[in-house]
């Protein structure tokens, strides 16, 4: 059962220098109760695609899509006002930097109670009780006294727990986590990931995890969407992406993580060059300029999504039935 179904989403930013085509026609879905990971480099459009769905982008951004269905509601036509009712209620969000995403002028309690009072129309006393309960769920010790404290009195990991508490306060159906552990140390990251996994199972919430860390994804997600240059180059289950990747960019991504077998040291295989300029996006496949297997057609035409299984799709000309025979060897 699909909770979120996005068809052909395009997001463009209008700036003085022209139009930045940050997201260029992506389609994906999130099933109920699953967690998907969106990976890609900075500027690949992973955060922007989610933010534009939620209409959280500045006014110079323009969103177009064939359809964005969330729990049966068409979001493309929904106006800001109706959107506001859903955000924080049906959809929760956790941002990257817990230092800046909490308001330093309000106590933690006020910030957790706010969505409860607005969306769930709870009284002050009810909201306080609920807030204490949520803080307990995210494993913050002595929640009663912690409620009265301000964000600066919390450590980074604790603040991220508070962010999770706020996001989950109204029992949302979808939780969007934008690099939730990037700003944290590894031991704290492990704590937060464990907590998120626990809560996912307990609260039956779908998670969209935006990250550039393949390790985090391997530990957290059922499915992976790989983005490059504003397009989805490959998507599939975690196993399909890690063990049978079909797109050269995914190969590059997986190979640039240090591997250790028997203590033997291998040279890192890097992807040469840098990501495309989305002010002037390439005509064909966005990865052509950095792809070791690029062919003539790659420069001219964007590749089609090719289905490899029910869950696995990749967009690469190498997999086209008419591609040269050597391409098939590269793929297998």
């Amino acid at each position: 059962m699909k909770l979120l179904d996005v068809q052909n989403l395009r997001t463009t930013f209008h700036i003085e220098a022209g139009q930045v085509q940050a997201v260029r026609g992506i389609s994906f879905h999130v099933n109920k109760g699953e967690s998907i990971g969106i990976v890609g480099e900075s500027g690949s459009g992973k955060s922007v695609s989610m933010l534009s769905l939620l209409k959280l982008l500045p006014s110079n951004a323009k969103l177009e899509a064939d359809s964005v269905l969330f729990d049966g509601i068409e979001l493309v036509k929904t106006d800001q006002k109706a959107m506001r009712k859903m955000l924080g209620n049906d959809i929760g969000m956790i941002f990257q930097d817990p230092m800046t995403s909490l308001n330093p002028l309000f106590t933690i309690g006020e910030q957790i109670m706010e969505p409860l009072r607005i969306h769930q129309k709870l009284s002050k006393e009810e909201a306080r009780k609920k807030a204490i309960e949520i803080l307990r769920t995210v494993e913050i010790p002595s929640p009663e006294s912690r409620l009265k404290q301000y964000p600066h009195e919390f450590s980074g990991g604790m603040r991220q727990r508070v962010m999770i508490a706020i996001a989950l306060s109204c029992s949302p159906k979808l939780l969007i986590a934008d690099e939730p552990t990037t700003a944290l140390d590894v031991t704290i990251q492990a704590q937060i990931l464990d907590l998120m996994r626990d809560l996912r199972n307990k609260m039956d919430v779908s998670i969209v995890m935006i990250t550039h860390d393949l390790g985090v994804i391997a530990n957290m997600c059922n499915r992976i969407v790989v983005m490059y240059g504003g397009t989805i180059v490959e998507q599939g289950t975690t196993r399909e992406i890690f063990y049978e990747p079909k797109h050269p960019y995914t190969w590059g991504l997986l190979r640039s993580i240090p591997q250790f077998s028997e203590g033997e040291k291998k040279k890192l295989i890097s992807i040469p060059g840098s990501p495309p300029d989305l002010l002037r996006p390439p005509q064909g496949c966005a990865f052509t300029a950095r792809c070791p297997h690029a062919m003539k057609i790659c420069e001219k035409l964007p590749p089609q999504q090719i289905s490899l299984s029910d869950t696995h799709q990749a967009a690469c000309w190498l997999m086209h039935p008419k591609a040269a025979p050597h391409a098939k060897e590269v793929i297998s």
Partner: peptide, 14 residues
């Protein structure tokens, strides 16, 4: 503890 906290980029080992 530090080394075991690093998420392993491999679903089977993870």
């Amino acid at each position: 503890a530090l080394l075991s906290a690093v998420p392993i980029a491999d679903p089977d080992t993870a």
